[in-house]
């Protein structure tokens, strides 16, 4: 029962690349606010934030290296939240 999974040691270099990616994405999301995207401003911001959080989940939080059960749980929780959000907006968008 106390056997534990083998642990993957992530290289420092990997983390640095991920950080550089995250900083670039932050730069992009700040830069695009200068453009007048109109109604797409929220969408673009959320998509960029989504990519950033995926990077954090996969690398910093080790989902890429761990057993799939953690990733499945994360996806399940996100799915529940997204459906709750959609259903809430079934009310607000059609009032």
């Amino acid at each position: 029962m106390s056997q534990n999974e083998k642990h993957h040691i992530v290289k420092y270099r990997t983390y640095i690349f991920v950080l550089l990616g995250l900083l670039t994405l932050t730069g992009i999301s700040v830069a695009v606010t200068g453009l007048n995207l109109g109604p797409f401003a929220v969408t673009v911001a959320l998509v960029l934030a989504g990519i950033k959080s995926t990077l954090v989940l996969l690398f910093f939080m080790h989902l890429k290296f761990d057993q799939p059960v953690y990733g499945i749980m994360v996806l399940f929780v996100l799915a529940v939240f997204v459906v709750v959000m959609i259903i809430t907006f079934l009310d607000y968008s059609f009032r």
Binding site: S29, T33, A41, A49, K52, S53, L57, F60, M61
Partner: peptide
Amino acid sequence: LENAGLYWHLVDLIWIFLFPLFYLIS
């Protein structure tokens, strides 16, 4: 330490969404 790290990344994750929603979309 691993679990403490997970908690810290959670704080980061939430900020990743708070930042554009409050500061950027204008």
